[in-house]
């Protein structure tokens, strides 16, 4: 009896997994600002809040004053793309460490690196964007 029930449940395992993925997607959208287009929630083509509407700003800071805007090197574009999709603190930290390594390799360094992730919201008539800070980190290089 139990074996039959388990066998039946196993037959519908893909649907159970589907539901788990969807719940995880909604959790990340709600609490970690995951783009609704991603994460298996089938939100593609439903909102402007995806890749091109999100952008990253990186700055070198000294005494809490912005000294320079840092251009994110091309070789770190995958990490940056991941951060734009899911601007969690751990993804911010990953990009901060990569930028820190890059700055050290080019003989640059700052007491702090600030990384910000922004999203754009568009006016429904004119499409003029306004911007919203999704997450920020002030990283102190070791």
């Amino acid at each position: 009896m139990i074996y039959d029930k388990l066998k039946w449940l196993f037959s519908y395992l893909p649907i159970l997994l589907f539901i788990v993925i969807v719940l995880h997607h909604y959790y990340l959208v709600r609490f970690e600002n995951l783009s609704p287009w991603l994460g298996g929630g089938y939100g593609m083509f439903s909102t402007t809040d995806y890749g091109p509407s999100r952008y990253i700003k990186a700055y070198g800071l000294k005494d809490n004053i912005i000294k320079e805007e840092i251009k994110i090197p091309l070789k770190h574009s995958k990490v940056a793309r991941k951060l734009r999709s899911l601007p969690s603190t751990s993804n911010l930290q990953d990009l901060a460490l990569d930028i820190d390594d890059y700055l050290k390799s080019t003989q640059h360094s700052y007491p702090h690196i600030r990384i910000e992730v922004w999203s754009s919201h568009y006016d429904k008539k004119s499409l003029i964007p306004t911007f919203n800070l999704l997450n920020v980190i002030n990283h102190k290089p070791i």
């Binding site: 893909p14 649907i15 589907f18 539901i19 969807v22 609704p36 929630g41 089938y42 939100g43 593609m44 083509f45 439903s46 909102t47 402007t48 809040d49 509407s53 919201h121 568009y122 006016d123 429904k124 499409l127």
Partner: peptide, 28 residues
């Protein structure tokens, strides 16, 4: 699975702050 995929796609569109007012398709 097909039913759920389409149901979710609809829910996402209805809940989206910028789909029903046409902003999304203007932008796209």
């Amino acid at each position: 699975l097909i039913g759920l995929v389409f149901l979710l796609a609809c829910i996402q569109k209805i809940l989206s702050p910028d789909y029903l007012d046409g902003t999304f398709f203007q932008y796209l």
